[in-house]
């Protein structure tokens, strides 16, 4: 079984992001970029499936500018076998990503596709679900545990009320949650070896996919600053403040 993992190049999770002065987006100049942490969990899960003999090949795919190749190299250093870079400098929204991944699925015929549940830049949480719909295959989102049993997968999902276990037919789409696994560090020798693994370059045009944006960003703003709270002496004051100041009751 081939496993396809989608990996996105995003602002590193340690970076304090700043909104551009004109409110059109986030300032990316000289900002450290790395692999979306949820995608890293996806790569780790795929590599573990291969190590357990459940997967035969792990393919990683990234969509973005030329530098997205670095993200693919990181995934290859973690143990993926080969990469596909769909090169574009345009903004690619979740629906377009899902369409591009669908085109890759048609070509590669994977038994399982893993995406992060969301990317830490736009937090859309849509790509995996849309891909499942376009591909016409089952989906198991927010995975906490994954068991492959023949042509089925048992997936423990993280839901609001706790955990839910579902069984789905393969091929299918899985999206990772934070506790699915703890990704390994790419070791230095494996980073050296990853240099020799193949990365295939494609473009949205070569895949015949229209990636034109359907959504328009109107404005990007910093979240409001949190102000200090106050201590109240008793419940009566609290209730009064909730009525008069907070206006919630």
């Amino acid at each position: 079984m081939k496993v396809l993992v989608a990996v996105k190049r995003v602002v590193d999770y340690n970076v304090k992001v700043r909104v551009k002065a004109d409110g059109t987006g986030v300032d990316l100049a000289n900002v450290k970029m790395s692999m979306n942490p949820f995608d890293e969990i996806g790569v780790e899960e795929a590599v573990r499936l291969k190590e357990a003999g459940k997967a035969t090949e792990v393919i990683v795919v990234s969509i973005g500018p030329a530098q997205a190749q670095e993200t693919l190299r990181t995934a290859l250093a973690m143990g993926a076998d080969r990469g596909i870079l769909i090169k574009t400098d345009a903004e690619v929204q979740p629906l377009a990503v899902a369409k591009l991944l669908k085109a890759v699925c048609d070509a590669e015929q994977p038994g399982l596709v893993i995406t992060g549940k969301q990317a830490i830049d736009d937090d859309s949480n849509q790509t995996g679900q849309m891909l499942a719909a376009l591909w016409g295959r089952p989906q198991a989102t927010f995975a906490n545990k994954l068991f492959i049993e023949g042509d089925k997968a048992k997936v423990v999902r993280e839901i609001d009320g706790g955990l839910q276990t579902v069984e789905i037919d393969l091929p299918a789409v899985l999206t990772t949650d934070l506790r699915l696994n703890e990704p390994r560090y790419a070791s230095l020798p494996n980073i050296m070896k990853a240099k020799k693994k193949p990365i295939d370059e494609k473009t949205p045009e070569s895949l015949g996919v229209d990636i034109a944006s359907r959504l328009k960003v109107l404005k990007v703003a910093e979240p409001p600053k949190r102000v200090a709270g106050v201590k109240v002496p008793d419940v009566a004051t609290l209730v009064q403040k909730l009525k008069t100041e907070a206006g919630v009751i």
């Binding site: 790395s34 670095e70 190299r73 250093a77 560090y185 790419a186 230095l188 980073i191 050296m192």
Partner: peptide
């Protein structure tokens, strides 16, 4: 080591 790989090595170590 070539520069591109070196950046990855350094990133891996600093992390």
């Amino acid at each position: 080591v070539d520069q591109e790989t070196f950046v990855q090595l350094k990133d891996a170590i600093s992390r």
